[in-house]
Every structure is written in structure tokens, then in C-alpha cells.
């Protein structure tokens, strides 16, 4: 029962900790990250655009064209907006290594500042969804239930009930949402990367987007009350588990019950027999 000593007393404790953690992270973000995006760092808007354009030319233009007009390799980026750039680059999807059924997330190679610069440049080309402010995707404990309902209506069909991802056609898949940060989730809904549909602010209003994110954050930090979650994949992993671990455990018992008990060595048996005789 020692392990129980670490228990937390209140059901909401986890959520309170989570909310505090997020608030703390948000403060940090505000303290360190946000200023980089503003002119306070001394980088003027013009400089930012120039830097962004330089980065764009060196890293993106081979597929998306010199003026972001698009080529056979990549779509036009005019009007996709800063949110799209931030999502694609910060999740490492862009620049793409190779074109396949789906461009997958990988290690992001740019600094936050560089991403901001590129995003500003693309934004300047034709507008589009802006990078959301931190407050838009902050955890809201009161919105979790509504978020769950919206998640099950809009998201879980592809991403699974716990955001564990799922299969699409022709080898494509809806990725796991367990590592994606709230800003990226917001941007993904806003811009509809690759085959994901777009959920613009008219279709899912900002408050509802925040609710969905709150639900996801709650879900990923929620204990598996009943024990090991088996990947939160539903009945398939439960079936696999019972046919492996469960069956083996039960068969070991059956074997133990039915197997002959180890016999005494012949020598000992003979000794005992002799002793028995002598005793008589």
C-alpha cells in the first residue's frame, strides 16, 4: 500500500495542476517568446519581411515557386496565411523531405524567430489565417464537456476517441494528437493541413475551438482510471491483451495444476524405503 501514499486527494487535483502548469507555461511564453515576434527586439517589420523572404527563397521556393505561386511540386502559398506556415514548419512537416501519400511530422529545423519571419512574409503575400494568440487556445476547465461533444462530432472519426490517430485511404492517416501543442492544434483546425478539412472560425467558432483544445488537453492528462490504458485504442488492444497475457497466465495455472509433482530422487526414495524397513 506504499504506492498509495502518493495519491492525490481531489478528483479535480489533476486539472488544477494542469491549469496551473498551463498558466505558468503561458507566462513563460509571454515573457520569452512573444517579444521576439514584436518589433521590440529591434527587428523592424521590413527587416522581418526581408528575413522571411530570404528564408522562403532558400527553403521553400523550390517547390512553392519564387513568388509562392506554386509549382508542380507544391501548392501556391498565396492566401494560406501565417497560421498555416507556423503549423507546417513548427511540426517539421515543411520543408518536406520527399513527397508521398502524406508529409509526416519530423524534427523542426527552424528557430521560432525564423518561423515568425517566414510566416510574416507569407502573410504579406495574400493574407489568410493569422497565428492565434495564446489566450485563444488556453485551457478552460469549464469548456471540457462541450469540447468533448464537439471533438466526438468533428475529430474522433479520424483521430480516435482519445486522439490516438487513425487510418485514412491509400496509406494516409490521421496523426496522433497526443504530442501536438495547443497552438498547433488550433492552427490545424484553422488551416486544414493536407487532407484534414478546414474548420474556419465560421464553422467552428473560436470559443468552440478552445473548448476542443481544452478537452484534448484534459484527455491526454487524464488518468487511465481503470489501469493500464493499452494505448487507448478500444477493444482490439483489449482482445490482443487477453489472448496473450491473459491466456498465458491462465494456461500456466492449468499446467501447474495438472503437471506431476517432482518426484524424490531415486537415491532418497531408496534411503527412505530402507529407513522405513529398519524402523519396522
Amino acid at each position: 500500500m506504499k504506492s498509495l501514499s502518493t495519491r492525490r486527494r481531489h478528483p479535480l487535483a489533476a486539472f488544477v495542476v494542469l491549469a496551473l502548469g498551463l498558466a505558468f507555461a503561458g507566462t513563460l511564453f509571454a515573457a520569452f517568446v512573444s517579444p521576439a515576434a514584436s518589433a521590440d527586439t529591434g527587428e523592424s517589420a521590413a527587416q522581418q519581411l526581408a528575413n522571411g523572404k530570404a528564408l522562403y527563397i532558400s527553403s521553400c521556393s523550390s517547390c512553392h515557386g519564387k513568388n509562392a505561386e506554386g509549382t508542380g511540386l507544391g501548392p501556391s502559398l498565396v492566401g494560406v496565411g501565417a497560421a498555416s506556415v507556423d503549423f507546417q514548419v513548427s511540426t517539421g512537416r515543411m520543408p518536406a523531405k520527399q513527397l508521398g501519400a502524406q508529409v509526416e511530422a519530423k524534427q523542426n529545423i527552424f528557430s521560432t524567430q525564423q518561423i515568425q519571419d517566414m510566416a510574416a512574409y507569407v502573410q504579406s503575400l495574400g493574407g489568410g489565417p493569422q497565428i492565434p494568440a495564446a489566450g485563444q487556445y488556453a485551457y478552460d476547465a469549464n469548456a471540457v464537456a462541450l469540447g468533448g461533444q464537439l471533438f466526438r462530432e468533428n475529430c474522433s472519426q479520424c483521430h480516435n476517441f482519445a486522439g490516438e490517430g487513425g487510418a485514412l485511404t491509400d496509406g494516409k492517416f490521421a496523426p496522433k494528437l497526443t504530442q501536438t501543442n495547443p497552438q498547433q492544434i488550433y492552427e490545424a483546425m484553422l488551416t486544414g493541413p493536407q487532407n484534414m478539412p478546414v474548420f474556419s472560425d465560421k464553422v467552428i467558432p473560436p470559443a468552440e475551438k478552445q473548448a476542443i483544445i481544452s478537452y484534448l488537453l484534459n484527455s491526454r492528462n487524464e488518468p487511465n482510471y481503470g489501469g493500464a490504458g493499452l494505448g487507448r485504442l478500444g477493444p482490439v488492444s483489449e482482445g490482443l491483451f487477453i489472448w496473450t497475457v491473459g491466456l498465458i497466465a491462465l494456461l500456466l495455472c492449468a499446467v501447474w495444476i495438472a503437471a506431476h509433482t517432482t518426484k524424490a530422487s531415486a537415491q532418497k526414495a531408496a534411503q527412505a524405503a530402507a529407513a522405513g524397513k529398519a524402523g519396522k
Binding site: 504506492s3 478528483p11 487535483a13 488518468p223 487511465n224 482510471y225 489501469g227 493500464a228
Partner: peptide
């Protein structure tokens, strides 16, 4: 409603 954390299962009831 208490939750307990232990390796390798994580947080459970």
C-alpha cells in the same frame, strides 16, 4: 476519487 501514480502504468484510480 483518489488517483495513484506508479510505474509503468501511470496514473490510475
Amino acid at each position: 476519487t483518489a488517483v495513484v501514480n506508479f510505474f509503468p502504468i501511470g496514473a490510475v484510480s
